[in-house]
Design a protein around this nucleic acid. Structure first.
Lengths: 347, 347
DNA sequence: TATGAATGCGCAAACGTTTGCGCATCAGGC
DNA sequence: GCCTGATGCGCAAACGTTTGCGCATTCATA
């Protein structure tokens, strides 16, 4: 199974066998007959190179690491796919790790991958700490962060243009006539959350619409958190006519909450959201969303990583922004007067 | 960065450094002071083991391979996740590869992974050929096939109980009173396709309902193929009152086709399908589906693989079946009389 | 028939570990 | 003072490659 066996069978030295099987025959003047003999021997015993030994010798593992919080989430899966395809096209293989939204796991996995001598790393961080990533970067590991970045620090980050999306969604709601708008946020303190909320608030303010702190609820990017937040918010502030959900998971929770409260979307409540479900146009109701270009996120990350590995100069902008596209569907309508002041409306 | 550096700094031999850092100090009677010195030196220069060298020496790469046709497909992503989590729990890392539904790519990737000396392989095959997998198995590589298996051969396979699901879906349609039922199939010749179709046909026959060959259309598990097939079938056979879509992608295509033809589901057309969309209950209409237990598929595959690596005896049954759950939603109704014989119906 | 250049191939070191074996050193018992 | 048994550690080989250098052989040329 090793070069030694091939060499013995072909009656040549290991060095010769190595050169033949690495197609370096030409540069080293190996005779055609020897080449043929080695090839035949290799085929006969089913020889395959040990990439391990080769990596050890060459110092190049041809391995890339990818760490995401949840592999089964289509968002991260799409990113992982783009990186995988780009990597394979360049001869790299991808080590995939799932941090399960756990900071400690992420640290452990990053270290494991570094032990495996990955040549580059893409990570969608859980988002709480970045020192383990900064350390990797300081050690010279090419590193790209995707989606959830950090406002400070040095990490090269690829993420959507959250402000752009939030502003566009605000415009949709404002134009429909909404003035009492609630926000269902994800995990406060994370870049994506805070950028979206801040831009949204700013856009409302520009139209003289206030967004009281009490109108902002939620503590996680999950369906259940969205449902809980929406339920509390709509119960305490029944005058709210529209909701901005910070992710599709949160939006689904909001839909459930609305159903619980007997409010029909969009008649009794308008809803806009970030992200996009695979088949949002078949949802009931079809949601108006700021749709992230997920494949582009992955592609850009892969490009940047590969470029850094190749030694290309680091791009000037630390934050690489991918544009989002607002898709207007049927979850926004003009605000109706609510049951507190009953009035007949024709749907 | 290597043991040599640690050893030099600590003033000991490489062997001693190795033993200390592998926590074999106790078994080798290394003095506490030496242990401390080595540890300090290692920390000072930021030493990390080279898993490459370790793998080469030990012959254990602690690497598992996973090959799927499309990483970004939630179905495969969920499977990949379960394997990843199970692998990490046992100290393995996962090399993920995407065959892009391409048989040649799958072969190439499998060989690459084998060059990397993976200790086990899970593959969701494209499904056309299996000789490259059989070869790997013959070479002693622990191997588990998931989802799309092969009717013949030796490959240990984990897949859903397609017959059970198809029979149950047939029962739903029959009970609703349907007698003219069309089938939108995926790629004929694949195990999942043929098992579903055969069981469905058999279940209909048991109720004295014929399923003519011309009622079976479609050639791929994709939305566009489903749409095309549904369009052709419903146009040529307008008397059909219900459709069995072999996957959720195909079902979405069928929904689009129905909309094109002005047939409202379920009033003018009933629809049942395999698989489940992440949020099928928010779809319009909510689809009645035979829902696969995708995490269970991945989990079982991981278990079997890990067991085979550990040397446990191979299970008796080559085909491991995971039960599917039929979820009745609102896409099935009693067959209405069609426009060929107009009649008023109250929806 | 020597001589130089081609031609064809092998030696051995190196990559960073792990590990069986053996060599010192020292304390204590006789 | 010598032997025995701990105790503490190092030597060197091995894992499977790659590769710089050098050694033979052959051939044409002088």
């Amino acid at each position: 199974m090793t070069l030694k066996h091939v060499a013995q069978l072909a009656g040549v030295s290991i060095a010769t066998a190595s050169r033949v099987l690495a197609d370096k025959g030409g540069a080293h003047r190996i005779s055609d007959s020897t080449v043929a003999a080695v090839r035949a021997a290799a085929k006969q015993i089913g020889f395959r190179h040990s990439h391990l030994a080769r990596s050890l010798k060459s110092g190049q593992s041809a391995l890339l690491g990818v760490v995401v919080p949840d592999v089964s989430n289509p968002f991260f899966a799409a990113i992982a796919r783009e990186i995988t395809l780009a990597a394979e096209a360049k001869g790299y293989s991808v080590l995939l790790a799932d941090s399960r939204e756990d900071d400690a796991s992420e640290r452990r996995l990053v270290n494991q991958l570094r032990d495996r001598r990955i040549e580059g790393l893409v990570v969608c961080p859980v988002g709480l700490t970045q020192d383990h990533l900064a350390a990797a970067l300081d050690d010279g590991l090419p590193l790209v962060v995707v989606d959830r970045g950090f406002a400070d620090g040095e990490l090269l980050t690829v993420t959507s243009d959250h402000a752009q999306g939030a502003v566009a969604l605000a415009a949709v709601l404002l134009q429909a006539g909404h003035r009492r708008i609630g926000v269902l946020q994800g995990r406060a303190g994370t870049l994506v959350n805070d950028e979206r909320v801040a831009a949204f608030k700013h856009a409302l303010a520009a139209a003289d619409v206030r967004l009281p702190t009490s109108y902002i609820r939620g503590d996680a990017f999950s369906e259940i958190a969205g449902q809980t937040a929406a339920l509390a918010l709509l119960t305490q502030q029944p005058g709210i006519t529209a909701l901005f959900a910070l992710s599709n998971q949160i939006a689904l929770g909001a839909l459930r909450a609305a159903a619980q409260l007997g409010r029909v979307v969009p008649r009794d409540l308008s809803l806009v959201t970030f992200d996009d479900l695979p088949h949002a146009d078949f949802l009931n109701p079809p949601l108006t969303t700021a749709c992230q270009d997920v494949p582009a996120l992955g592609r850009r990350a892969a490009e940047l990583l590969l470029a850094r590995i190749a030694g290309t100069a680091r791009p000037r902008t630390r934050m690489q922004r991918i544009a989002v596209t607002v898709i207007e569907r049927a979850s926004v309508a003009a605000p109706a007067l609510l049951s507190t002041t009953p009035r007949k409306t024709r749907s």
